[in-house]
Simulated scan of single mutants.
Amino acid sequence: MTSAEQPAVPSPAPRKRPGRRPGSTDTRRTVLEAARAEFAARGYEKASMRAIGRTAGVDAALLHHYFGSKDRLFLAALEFPVDPRTVVEQVLAGDRATVGERVAGFVLTLWEQPGVLDRLLALIRAAATTEQVAELMRGFVLEELVRRAAAELDIDQPELRTELMLSQIIGLAMARYVIGVEPLASATREELVPLLAPTFQGYLGGA
């Protein structure tokens, strides 16, 4: 899966409007800088599109028009390579008895895509060393991934189970791609999927 497309903000209409900055590239950069500042200052859950628009000097409606929603603006601002909505839809669709295999296959396939692994590892490293980034990621992951997935799972303690699965995935990324522990680092997708699938299946309450 590739990262969600983030359309560039075009130049505003020829007529002048107070507070609207001209130039598509400048406008997009200003909006993303304002978004990063607001998310950092208020956290993901408390930051609002209205406040971001006010900081950027543009109408909040412009943000909704080009980015769609706060979570998609967050993805663009942090250059997050994965759309959690798509992740939840893809891995939870189909037979729940094989969801663990789908999660394992999805994760390993995702990491093999150009640019995705580097960006994800950069975010993991930043969250591990910078509390501000960690707080942002906690709010975003909880709101847009954990709670979305938990709402679709008819199991006991769905949020805790989902977070346990995420901890397994992050640990796998660190051991396989950051530390490079062998033979894990050199193992193929075909070798790893059947070994990981039962663990993920257990977290999600399947057979």
Rank of each mutant, 00 (worst) to 15 (best):
1 M>T: 10
2 T>Y: 11
4 A>V: 11
5 E>P: 11
6 Q>N: 10
8 A>H: 10
9 V>N: 00
10 P>E: 04
10 P>L: 03
10 P>I: 00
15 R>K: 13
16 K>F: 03
17 R>T: 10
19 G>R: 03
19 G>D: 01
19 G>Q: 07
20 R>F: 03
22 P>V: 00
25 T>F: 02
26 D>S: 14
31 V>W: 04
33 E>G: 14
33 E>M: 07
38 E>Q: 13
41 A>D: 12
42 R>I: 15
46 K>W: 11
50 R>C: 01
51 A>W: 01
51 A>T: 15
52 I>K: 03
55 T>W: 04
56 A>Y: 07
56 A>D: 03
57 G>T: 07
57 G>W: 04
58 V>W: 08
60 A>R: 11
61 A>H: 10
61 A>T: 15
61 A>Q: 15
64 H>F: 14
64 H>I: 15
66 Y>Q: 06
66 Y>M: 13
72 R>A: 02
74 F>Y: 09
77 A>D: 05
79 E>M: 15
79 E>S: 12
80 F>S: 01
81 P>A: 14
86 T>K: 13
94 G>Y: 01
94 G>M: 03
95 D>V: 02
102 R>C: 05
103 V>M: 05
107 V>T: 11
114 P>G: 01
116 V>K: 04
117 L>N: 05
117 L>S: 04
118 D>K: 10
120 L>Q: 03
123 L>T: 04
124 I>V: 15
127 A>N: 08
134 A>N: 08
135 E>T: 07
138 R>V: 08
142 L>Y: 04
147 R>S: 07
147 R>V: 01
149 A>F: 05
151 A>Q: 08
151 A>E: 09
152 E>G: 06
152 E>K: 13
153 L>A: 02
154 D>G: 03
159 E>W: 06
159 E>H: 08
160 L>F: 12
163 E>F: 13
165 M>Q: 06
166 L>M: 08
166 L>V: 00
166 L>D: 00
167 S>Y: 14
168 Q>D: 14
169 I>V: 11
170 I>H: 00
176 R>K: 15
179 I>L: 15
179 I>M: 09
181 V>K: 12
184 L>F: 11
186 S>M: 14
187 A>Y: 09
190 E>P: 08
196 L>W: 01
196 L>G: 05
200 F>C: 11
201 Q>P: 06
202 G>W: 07
203 Y>I: 02
205 G>W: 04
205 G>Q: 08
